[in-house]
Design a protein around this nucleic acid. Structure first.
Lengths: 106, 106
DNA sequence: TTGACAAGCAACTATATGGTTGCCTATTAT
DNA sequence: ATAATAGGCAACCATATAGTTGCTTGTCAA
């Protein structure tokens, strides 16, 4: 049930982009996160609310600003759900190789 | 773009359950996967089609049956996107601890 | 060879979801 | 004080999506 919120939250590309931005720089405000994103501030606020409900981000108020922080724990949960302890080394090796060859897609 | 399909596919609880079933026993047919799932066979077929499009499962035809196999590679991709190399040990330790204390939810 | 079983295809419906506009509240700075 | 800035709330719209029913195709066994 908590996990359902996590997956729903990750299903949207705009929300994933917001997470990426937070990963690049933690503790940004709503306006900062939304700047340049071809979407109204209200839309961004909704996305951040979902991410917060899913526990993928934590927030803290500072004056009139609201700061947002990435929480990686739920992602870890996804990983462990379908990837067995003994597959992990093999998959990591594969992934490292792929990254070395290509050079980042998505 | 390929990753978008993966996240969309994982967003639905029925599809996650199908993945869980495949993780429990690999190589099941459509009917086997759907049995007991309070949903028509056609609905299951649609879900499996999405999972296959997302490359989360691979399929093989055997006579009139279609066998389904779990592919964990895209899950690995999610993990590595938001969890830095140096956070991994810490998060795994946390997760192991949590599992030891609680005993599996969701 | 004909019936039963496994799966595929297509149209339709209801609801969930992403995004918008418009307005209100709270904090900071002049 | 008051204007500007940062954010919150609510109603509304369009589309995406999960699920259904109904029918067709392909394969196996008696």
């Amino acid at each position: 049930m908590g996990m359902d919120l996590v997956f729903k939250a990750l299903a949207d590309p705009s929300r994933r982009k917001l997470l990426d931005r937070l990963r690049a720089r933690n503790g940004q405000t709503l306006s900062e996160l939304g700047s340049g994103l071809d979407m109204t501030r209200q839309a961004v606020a909704k996305h951040l609310a979902l991410l917060e409900a899913a526990n993928l981000i934590a927030t803290r108020k500072r004056g009139r600003e609201k700061l947002h922080y990435l929480n990686p724990v739920p992602i870890q949960g996804i990983y462990e759900r379908w990837i067995g302890k003994f597959e992990r080394n093999r998959l990591r090796a594969l992934s490292d190789l792929k990254k070395a060859l290509e050079q980042g897609d998505d």
